[in-house]
Design a protein around this nucleic acid. Structure first.
Length: 528
RNA sequence: CGGGGCGUAGCGCAGCCUGGUAGCGCACCUGGUUCGGGACCAGGGAGUCGGAGGUUCAAAUCCUCUCGCCCCGACCA
């Protein structure tokens, strides 16, 4: 059982977030997002306001990924928000995939209506409707077609940071909203091999980022046909396990073959003087990662931010008691803050917040606990006397604090943060390992994903937290996927590259559903 | 788009059945006592009760219409 859960032996602990994960996971998630001040709903249905602390997390994700994209040769650019309807129509599968959830712009002017309001001017109707981009393959393809003439123009390695709109029915902050922020890489290559290598390279970038920065273990793998991106030849994903054991697709990378090159006319003259279609890729991660961060690390007291992603690493909370000591304490605090800021942690300066708001100490502490800042440092008159501070770590109990000398704090803060980062990853990995299982038969798989109802205090019954990741040989029969999705809401998340120990003899596997020879192992799970 | 629910102070709600002109908790403001882990006391500000129409001496409450939102069923980063 994870730290902070209210069930189990011992006295019931008062938690900052109610309900707890064990009591109502979905509601817990919403409460953490609110309590950590990450985001809130807005006047626009399905759209969220990302608040400064939440946006700072996204900025950290952007900053780290951007460096990784640049290091692999990509350049940033920006393409239009609006896509002519005819562009979207160019790739058949693509249309089918997105048509159902598009925002459409039909007019370019408003005039006074009868009731005093504004209405679209019938005389200002667009000749061709514009679609607010749900993704940009087609509009970027049009530019690529202009930019690419010769094999010497390839590869073309472009990324854009942008917002996109998908008119979703059911929305949840960060996890699924009608508008979201993301990054979409688009590349064009002279050969199939090179484009496939690019697809895999970016998948690796994502999994490295997830592991090292987000402290989130992921399974990398290829999607089945049923789960492929509309218009792609192959889709790859990284899949992470959330604390309720459901999978979250945390990043995708697509090998688009020549489908979009043909649709957009991305042609080039080869060295052999033949005309060829380019091979393209696209890959993306979104603000959904912030939701993934919450569901991977947060606990019943709120957000927990991995140090390497933290907008601020430490908050200093001055304990001010009376005017006689206030000046001394603040002098010490500012000195300490300056010293900490001079320390480098993975290429960044340590970020320090000094919270000297006129609030009670406990109230401030709890606020920062809920926000998930890695370290809290209290400095009061007694610490000033002793040249020390009281240090609390977000990965320990909320009341757990220990005195540390100023010198030691400055000297060891990076190793403390590294230890926390490693600890968060280890904990997430242990959780995933505990709930990942090889299954040998369909019955076993169905049992694994069938909840046993649990009687709550007060008599309510609700499904237990159950299931997890199931691995088994799979021959790739699409009708099996449909059946499992309909019956159990379980899907193949991907065909993982790296498999945990155990399982059947890889050289002689049979599909557990059809009995046919199988050369692949599939990862099954319920998902967000 | 089908089934269910809800709109009353910034947030969460009570009041409605049995009409009499608006209340509670949290938050906010002021003063005081407090303060090394979610304080207490006293005082205070804040709501055209989603909107329109009707019944009535009188409507948050009853009736009609309307708008918006949330939950459940077909999708998805």
């Amino acid at each position: 059982m994870t730290k902070g859960e209210s069930k189990g032996g011992g006295a019931k602990v008062e938690t900052a977030i109610k309900p707890t994960r064990a009591d109502d996971y979905a509601e817990w998630y919403q409460q953490v997002v609110r309590a950590a001040d990450l985001a809130e709903g807005s006047a626009v249905r399905g759209c969220m306001v990302i608040k400064p602390w939440g946006y700072a997390l996204w900025e950290r994700i952007q900053a780290e990924l951007d460096v990784m994209f640049k290091a692999t040769g990509h350049k940033n650019a920006y393409f239009p928000l609006f896509i002519p309807k005819s562009f979207l129509e160019k790739e058949a599968e693509h249309v089918e995939g997105f048509a159902k959830e598009c925002a459409v712009v039909t007019h370019h002017r408003l005039i006074a209506g009868e009731g005093g309001g504004l209405i679209p001017d019938p005389k200002a109707k667009l000749e061709e409707p514009l679609i607010v981009r749900p993704t940009s393959e087609t509009i970027i393809g049009a530019s690529f077609a202009q930019w690419v003439r010769s094999y010497r123009d390839l590869p073309l390695l472009i990324n854009q940071w942008a917002n996109v709109v998908r008119w979703e029915m059911r929305t949840r902050l960060f996890l699924r909203t009608a508008e979201f922020l993301w990054q979409e890489g688009h590349t064009a290559h002279a050969t199939r091999e090179e484009a496939e290598a690019e697809t895999r390279q970016m998948l690796d970038v994502y999994s490295t980022f997830a592991r090292e920065h987000m402290a989130m273990p992921v399974f990398k793998g290829r999607k089945t046909d049923a789960e492929r991106f509309p218009g792609a030849v192959d889709t790859y994903s990284i899949e992470a396990m959330m604390q309720d054991r459901k999978a979250l697709q945390a990043g995708t990378s697509h090998f688009l073959g020549q489908n979009f090159a043909k649709a957009s006319g991305i042609r080039f003259q080869s060295k052999q003087e033949t005309e060829e279609y380019a091979w393209t890729t696209s890959w993306g991660v979104s603000t959904r990662l912030v939701g993934g961060l919450v569901m991977t690390h947060a606990d019943d007291d709120g957000m927990v931010i991995p140090p390497r992603l933290a907008p601020a690493h430490v908050v200093i909370l001055p304990v001010l008691r009376g005017d006689d000591t206030k000046a001394k304490v603040m002098e010490f605090v500012h000195g300490l803050a300056a010293e900490l800021r001079s320390v480098t942690y993975h290429g960044r300066r340590i970020e320090v917040e000094v919270d000297n708001r006129d609030l009670r100490g406990g109230e401030k502490s709890w606020e920062w606990i809920k926000r998930g800042i890695p370290l809290r440092v209290e400095v009061g008159p007694r610490d000033v006397e002793a040249g020390s501070a009281m240090l609390s770590r977000r990965d320990r109990g909320t009341r757990d604090k220990a005195s540390i000398s100023r010198v030691d704090l400055v000297g060891t803060i990076t190793s403390i943060l590294d230890e926390m980062q490693a600890g968060l990853y280890a904990r997430a990995l242990a959780h995933r390992t505990e709930h990942t299982r090889w299954v040998g038969s369909r019955a076993e798989l169905e049992d694994f994903f069938t909840p046993k109802s649990v009687r709550m205090v007060g008599g309510d019954e609700r499904p237990e937290m159950h299931g997890g990741f199931a691995l088994c040989p799979f021959a790739g029969d699409a009708s099996v996927e449909t059946e499992l999705r309909e019956k159990l809401k379980v899907t193949v998340r991907n065909i993982p590259e790296d498999l945990p120990d155990g399982g059947p003899d890889r050289s002689n596997m049979r599909c557990i559903f059809t009995g046919a020879p199988a050369d692949k192992v599939a990862l099954f799970a319920k998902s967000y």
